[in-house]
């Protein structure tokens, strides 16, 4: 991963609000910490899709969301968010990398994926893609 790409993504994230939706507290803290390290301006956290719907003021620029969660899963949150806020970029964090699952998420408007277990570099790559940041 180039340092230049990190700098570009960091610059793009500086004024952005990111919403992390993840039901396990350790993974939620891990993603939030990595995002802050990448330069995110503001990181908000939610424990599931229902909680996420209460944290849309201000509307986040990017949502990073687990797929399998209690109460409301990632796919339902994606559908609801894209209906009301089509400009929000949505990254699904999941082990569901099978073709059928990917197609299903694409049909609901997902913008990117991060496969679990995730790393700082995999988050960086997904963010670069959805933010339209490319290495020079």
């Amino acid at each position: 991963m180039t340092e230049e790409l990190e700098q570009r993504v960091g610059a793009a994230l500086a004024d952005k609000t990111l919403l992390v939706v993840e039901d396990t507290s350790s993974s939620r803290l891990l993603v939030a910490g990595l995002l802050r390290g990448l330069g995110a301006g503001k990181v908000v956290a939610a424990i599931d899709g229902v909680d996420a719907l209460t944290k849309l003021t201000p509307v986040p620029d990017v949502v990073l969301c687990d797929w399998v969660m209690p109460k409301m899963d990632g796919l339902e949150l994606l559908t609801r968010l894209k209906a009301d806020h089509p400009g929000v970029k949505f990254i699904m964090m999941t082990v569901k990398t099978e073709a059928e699952a990917v197609i299903q998420a694409r049909q609901h408007g997902v913008d990117g994926y991060v496969a679990k277990p995730f790393t700082r570099d995999s988050l960086l790559t997904a963010l670069a893609k959805v933010l339209g940041v490319a290495a020079a």
Binding site: D23, T24, S26, S27, L30, K116, F118
Partner: peptide
């Protein structure tokens, strides 16, 4: 299955 899935993800991430 849900409990196992949830703990699996957290454990492998760390």
């Amino acid at each position: 299955r849900r409990a196992a899935h949830s703990l699996k993800g957290a454990a492998l991430n760390l």
